[in-house]
Nucleic acid binder design. Structure first.
Lengths: 239, 239
DNA sequence: GTCTATAAATCGATAGAC
DNA sequence: GTCTATCGATTTATAGAC
């Protein structure tokens, strides 16, 4: 399913030719990434990337067959980075509330430092671009990090969702329940997880897009409160 | 602060000349709106609007000084429509839970039917475009509709937020507290309101952007649950 | 595999005739 | 107030020499 471009980034190239190709591919991707970070996906073009690297625009087509392919690589990279940011911030062994807050903060900080990358994966879809299926696996790393924290808390008996409306089980995709089956979550707990993911992404989007201006006075403080509040809704022992 | 274009849409034109101008302005705006609804803001251009109307591109500049001005008019229109959708769906006199759910559903339905308009006001900002201050007033209509429901519930003594982390008052902008001062909300209640607005926008964004695919099985059902759950978090008597 | 050159479009904005 | 014409720039993508 993965095309050659991606395998070239993941497996060690053998011949000198392959090594050179891998290096240039990485260089193109890095330049594209710089331009994305600076101006956003709408202003990203193969030509401007070629210009920055001092090569002819046509040469880039040997490495990325189209602008969409370049975008896909950037999307995979963004998902990977936010997933790694979440995983690296986690503190296995610490109290679930600490882990929860640490991961939320890490995701926010990555997003604030990479607003265009955030927009690429969570914002309005790039017009004309359709995401290939490659992205689904890597897109799950960040959410799964949060799910793991809840699973650990549940295993320790410290996950106690507050009372409130219970999500009807038919609303959740069976495949989703299956994916989290190892943690033996109830459907309602999965629904709360989904809402927590959505909250994390959504509150950051609000902040990035200026919808909190003249609304909140201290964005970081409000974010921390949001994280705690959402954690409490899931049943984590925030007080 | 309002420029001529907007006043021309709001006040009744007097001379025949003014009437003709108002009609053509409305026609241009309608064509722009059609193109926005079809292809999104990224592919919206003054030239294509002019093409659709069969006029020279330069003629359009007599009505909208720049592409940004046209975008601003569309943004004001979108905020107005979603605000009206919310207000019209409200059922003053009915139980707060019914009103709450009705308004949430109306906002979702408007958004699903107008995804590019939703993206224009809640999605990734259009690159290079900076929103003028005209938009703040009209942007408040939808949120205020929800606030009003809570205020009425509070007045009737049926607003009882569940226990959980309390938002530190310093996190909220004083101007925001001031704006809702008439309802005598506590800072923590204002924080819950902000999160409810964010949830409504965010869960719709998730649905629109495909982040619920393979996650939820029945989007409408999950949305209703979300509305109830968020209403309960605010203290509305959802069971 | 990189280059030049080019095709075939798009766009915002302006000048100036009428 | 609408038109033609134009400036000056952008883009994706391809053809073909080397």
């Amino acid at each position: 399913m993965l095309s050659f471009r991606y395998t070239v980034l993941m497996n060690a190239p053998k011949t000198a030719r392959e090594r050179a190709r891998a290096e240039l591919t990485a260089e193109i991707l890095a330049a594209a990434r710089r331009q994305l970070a600076e101006s956003g996906s709408a202003l990203l073009s193969l030509r401007s990337v070629a210009r920055e690297l001092g090569m002819a625009s046509s040469a880039v087509y040997r490495y990325f067959a189209s602008r969409d392919d370049l975008l896909t690589a950037l999307i995979v990279q963004a998902y990977t980075e936010i997933g790694e940011a979440a995983e690296n911030a986690d503190l296995p062994g610490a109290a679930p509330e600490e882990r929860w807050l640490a991961v939320w903060r890490a995701v926010r900080e990555w997003s604030l430092a990479h607003r265009h990358e955030y927009a690429l994966i969570f914002g309005t879809p790039v017009p004309g671009y359709v995401a290939p299926h490659i992205t689904v696996e890597v897109a799950g790393r960040m959410p799964l990090t949060l799910a793991r924290i809840c699973a650990d808390a549940k295993g320790a008996g410290s996950l106690n969702p507050p009372s409130g409306p219970v999500c009807p089980p038919e609303a959740i995709e069976p495949a989703m329940l299956q994916m989290l089956a190892g943690e033996s979550f109830e459907p309602d707990e999965v629904a709360r997880l989904i809402l927590a993911w959505n909250r994390l992404v959504g509150i950051i989007g609000y902040e990035l897009h200026g919808h909190l201006q003249n609304v909140t006075a201290d964005d970081a403080l409000f974010f921390d409160h949001t994280a705690r509040s959402e954690g409490a809704d899931l049943g984590l022992p925030f007080r």
